[in-house]
């Protein structure tokens, strides 16, 4: 039997949390921005970093979404097969999006395909977008909320390379995307790279990669080394905040990977902008919860 009070409780928490992440950046992003600002040598870039910091303070004080583009809402769910509300989660997250749209308020960003009408609610076919991973035997649920803004979604790209192009081809692909379209996506960016077997598997992994913490590393030492090489290389370009040049270009490069077909290398890039609005929350089976992405939150 479904426990209606529990459904209501979880919906409330997710509504508040979804609205919350539009106003305050996660702890890892905040501290990385502070670090980049501290290391910045270019005067113009420093003025921009100062504006970003001032903007976040103003958003906090006035309790408003920090960027007007609050994006399309996406939820990445890792849920235990024994989580009591597993079957209700989809409806809960949809209602949370509806609620957060009013509470935020969030900008209306769901345009129904082909009808080309803005639904005015941030919900529509398959939106909010849900991504599922089931954890066998577990009874908790960890949910990642992401606001996919237009500017930071635009550079997204995916392709399939021939093995002859190798990881060298991956390097070229990443640099192509970042120097052509990443520049306009409000750098410094968090760059996610998926290395996989096909276009869509790589694309999904590249998005999962930007949900990982800034500064975390792939467990495989070669992949971790490639993360560092790409990060240092992109920083050497000196794209700077807003693409106006500076001492760095990115907050980091995160790679996620899977095994692949011997004849293909699927590769994809997703980017998160400086206002990388995501939040991670973990629910236990009794629906007590813990917010993992932001320090000192009271919902």
């Amino acid at each position: 039997m479904v426990d209606n009070a529990a459904v209501q409780d979880m919906t409330d928490v997710m509504t508040k949390f979804t609205a919350y992440i539009g106003k305050r950046l996660p702890t890892d992003v905040k501290s990385k921005l502070a670090e980049l600002r501290g290391n910045e040598k270019n005067e113009m870039a420093n003025v921009i970093y100062d504006s970003m910091a001032e903007n976040q303070d103003a958003a906090d004080k006035l309790n408003r979404p920090s960027c007007q583009d609050t994006g399309v809402i996406q939820y990445f769910v890792s849920v235990g097969s024994k989580f009591p509300l597993l079957g209700e989660l989809e409806a809960i997250l949809r209602d949370a999006t509806l609620g957060a749209t009013k509470l935020g308020p969030l900008r209306h960003n769901a345009v129904e395909a082909f009808d080309e009408k803005n639904t005015g609610s941030n919900t529509g076919s398959r939106i909010p977008w849900l991504d599922w991973e089931i954890m066998p035997g577990e009874d908790s649920a960890t949910i990642e909320v992401y606001m996919a803004g237009g500017g930071c979604t635009l550079p997204g790209a995916s392709t399939v390379l021939m093995p002859g192009q190798g990881y060298e081809g991956v390097v070229d692909f990443v640099f192509d995307v970042i120097t052509s379209r990443g520049v306009n996506a409000c750098p410094p960016l968090l760059v996610g790279v998926g290395v996989s077997t096909a276009a869509e598997t790589a694309a999904r992994l590249s998005k999962k990669a930007i949900l990982r913490s800034v500064g975390s590393h792939h467990p495989n030492p070669k992949a971790a080394k490639m993360e560092t090489l790409l990060e240092e290389g992109l920083n050497e370009l000196g794209i700077g905040p807003q693409g106006l040049t500076g001492s760095s270009s990115v907050m980091g490069v995160n790679i996620e990977s899977s095994a692949r077909h011997p004849s293909t290398i699927g590769v994809a890039v997703s980017t998160g902008c400086w206002a990388h609005r995501r939040g991670r929350i973990k629910f236990n089976s009794d629906l007590t919860y813990e917010i993992l992405s932001h320090e000192g939150v009271v919902l």
Binding site: E54, N55, R64, C186, C273
Partner: peptide, 8 residues
Amino acid sequence: FPGGCAVL
């Protein structure tokens, strides 16, 4: 004007 600084 720096992107993402709408409240400022």
